[in-house]
């Protein structure tokens, strides 16, 4: 067994969360730069250029890209040969979030309860998805998820006879209903299969893949291309002003499912597609 003190997890989360809030990963910047070249609406281009300028100012001045620094979603793939020491893993994760919030001047966006609605005062807790995997490493992925795009996400248990066309129509409808609210251009995470809750987790995790990379599964890569083309024909455009850049990428994750089911979850991600990861 490899021993690892959970303090290292807190330190990593602190660093990743701050960095995610100030600097987009190069794949997103590249995708935004490419859209300035392909977008035909002048107004849309003006918005895309200001979005890119915002990225430069945020990185240079260490100001959050967006005032909504999100509820922190953390994925941890924990190697089964890692022995965690020095405390509780989940508590260590929230300690990292609390430190990043204070040291990085992030906004307090987390409430204690959906109905009582009292601010927790330190941005904890977030949401943790823990998976035990082979090996002796721990992979930590941090996603500050803003409310605007999360609120426009949708899930449905489709009828198996709805098939691929039914899935595509549900995604088109989701993007259409959202309009300019989730801050397009979007990254669209799609979870297909599993169960009710599994599809949502797949959709969120799909957001973490590098934008511009191709899906390992050829049929899913084909499906992603079809969905991206159809979504970009809707014409919502950057911030809903119209244009052919409604989404930068569509990432689909598939999983086996029940003979009676066709679950589909669509997690929308705004252009501030923030996430950072590290392997300890």
């Amino acid at each position: 067994m490899r021993k690892l003190n959970v303090q290292n997890v807190s330190d990593a989360i602190n660093e990743l969360l701050q960095k995610a809030c100030y600097e987009l990963t190069p794949d997103i910047i590249r995708a935004l730069e490419n859209t300035v070249k392909t977008e035909t609406s002048l107004e849309a281009c003006s918005i895309l250029e200001k979005i890119l300028l915002n990225c430069r100012i945020a990185a240079d001045e260490k100001l959050p890209l967006c005032q909504d620094t999100g509820l922190t979603v953390v994925f941890i793939d924990l190697g089964q040969n890692v022995l965690l020491t020095g405390g509780n893993l989940e508590e260590a994760v929230w300690e990292g979030v609390r430190r990043a919030t204070k040291e990085g001047y992030l906004r307090l966006s987390v409430l204690n309860d959906p109905l009582l609605r009292k601010n927790t005062g330190d941005n904890s807790p977030g949401v943790l998805h823990l998976k035990i995997v082979p090996g002796d490493k721990i992979k930590i992925m941090v996603v500050p998820k803003g409310g605007g795009s999360e609120n426009m996400s949708r899930m449905k248990m489709l009828n198996p006879s709805d098939g691929e066309e039914g899935v595509i129509r549900f995604i088109e409808k989701t993007v259409s209903l959202a309009g300019g609210k989730p801050c397009p251009p979007l990254v669209i995470g799609v979870g297909l299969g599993g169960t009710f809750e599994m599809s949502g987790i797949l959709a969120k995790r799909a957001l973490l893949r590098e934008v511009g990379s191709s899906n390992n599964d050829p049929d899913t890569a084909r499906l992603e291309k079809v969905i991206l083309e159809r979504v970009n024909k809707i014409g919502i455009g950057p911030m809903g002003f119209g244009g052919n850049t409604t989404a930068l990428a569509v990432h689909v994750k598939r999983y086996p499912c029940h003979i009676a089911s066709l679950p589909v979850a669509v997690n929308l991600q705004c252009h501030s597609a923030r996430h950072r990861e590290v392997i300890l």
Partner: peptide, 9 residues
């Protein structure tokens, strides 16, 4: 409308 997600700008 202002540009959503352009908080630093």
């Amino acid at each position: 409308v202002a540009i959503g997600g352009a908080g630093a700008l």
